[in-house]
Amino acid sequence: LVLCLGDLFIPDRANFKKLLTPGKIGQILCLGNLTSPSVYTFLRNLAPDLQLVKGDFDISLSTPAPPNPNAAYAAPTDQVPVPTALSKVVTHGGLRIGFTHGHTIVPPGDPDSLLIAARQMDVDVLCWGGTCKFEAYEMEGKFFVNPGSATGAVSWSPDAELDSEGEAVSTPSFVLMDVS
């Protein structure tokens, strides 16, 4: 299983965290904006292979997370890296899966621009983020996936969903991918 998530911004979402337990997920694709060392440590303990790309609001993750005696996992001992790659490609079976934060896609989230990026990366599947909104669709034989925000961070986009009081809302989401 491959876990794909992004736009975290804040540390965690309890309802999701209890679903994500070590030993089930083989690889994590994190689409940037990983702004908390504690989340980095959580993800590092969740799967043996954590792949990061750079977001547009990454802050220095070089400060180690404070020890938490109540943590479900070991206290963080890893040196937290700052991702520098804007995009990466992983291969599962015959599928090439590309992933990027999405802030380099202009206009942001534009299907034609995403298709161009997928062709440039020579991938079958392109995962992107940056909009905090889940999307999945097929176009020109390629598959496009935006996992949304795993913590329910609110989109800055002008077409963001609004509640009855006009406040922006976001449905927390992530995706698991199983390739066979």
């Binding site: 598959f143 329910g152 449905t171 989401s173 991918m177």
Partner: peptide, 30 residues
């Protein structure tokens, strides 16, 4: 061809404001 099965996990609120995890499945065949 290779098949990718996407499991989408979303945290949705019901009418009482209680959050539940909804799972949807989407498939893609190369």
């Amino acid at each position: 061809g290779d098949v990718l099965v996407l499991y989408v996990y979303q945290l949705r609120k019901d009418q009482n404001g209680v959050e539940n995890v909804a799972v949807e499945k989407v498939s893609y065949r190369k």
